[in-house]
Amino acid sequence: MIQVKHLSHSFGRHWVLKNISFSLDKGDFLFLTGPSGAGKTTLLRVLHGSLALQRGRVLIAGFDLKTLPEKRLYQLRRQVAIVFQDFRILPDKSVRDNVALPLQVRGMISGQVQKRVRAVLRGLHLDRKAGHLCREISGGEQQRVAVARAVVTNPKVLLADEPTGNLDKKLSMQLMEVFRQFHIHGTTVVLATHSENLINSLPGAKILCLKDGSATESSWNAGEEECAY
């Protein structure tokens, strides 16, 4: 589902990602960890096509990022959904409207859109906030709106950038359960996080640790301090 080979990325002369390679199958779950500034966000943005591929190859959900023209990027994004660290939801729209957006841009008729949105909001315990404007809800709620918007289309690949950053432990675990459900049903998930608890909650997951731009793929080993941050 995802194949990354010799991926490097720089901002100016500063190489943030150096020669990263890994591959994930359908339904795999990958935790992306590493200290702040290690390049987790950058990697996710490259996978999502919002940063142009500079070096290396990336195959994701059947698209080759090297050859994918910009005007077909939207096709990639219909298979690969992302939850941004800063949410990127529309503050002046209601929770319901924000979550409906990905379905609307696919041309789904409004009755079906509402049905899907309602189901997803219920799953994320947001149903009572459906009519609220996003700027009037809490940070944790906004974060869940961002997650709801990403999963509402049932994507093949789900990328999430520290999606539990603003949540308390209980909500984090609830959200983790949502990701786990998608994972079980065959969605490939890449989740960037600092949270040891989160990583421990899913023992079968792969772990990729970014440090100084280089990556080491490992299975989680609590004793190994290499990948602790």
Binding site: Y74, Q75, R77, R88, I89, L101, V105
Partner: peptide, 12 residues
Amino acid sequence: EVEILALVGASS
């Protein structure tokens, strides 16, 4: 709004 539309898969 335009950026977000593009992020969630809207065609140009």
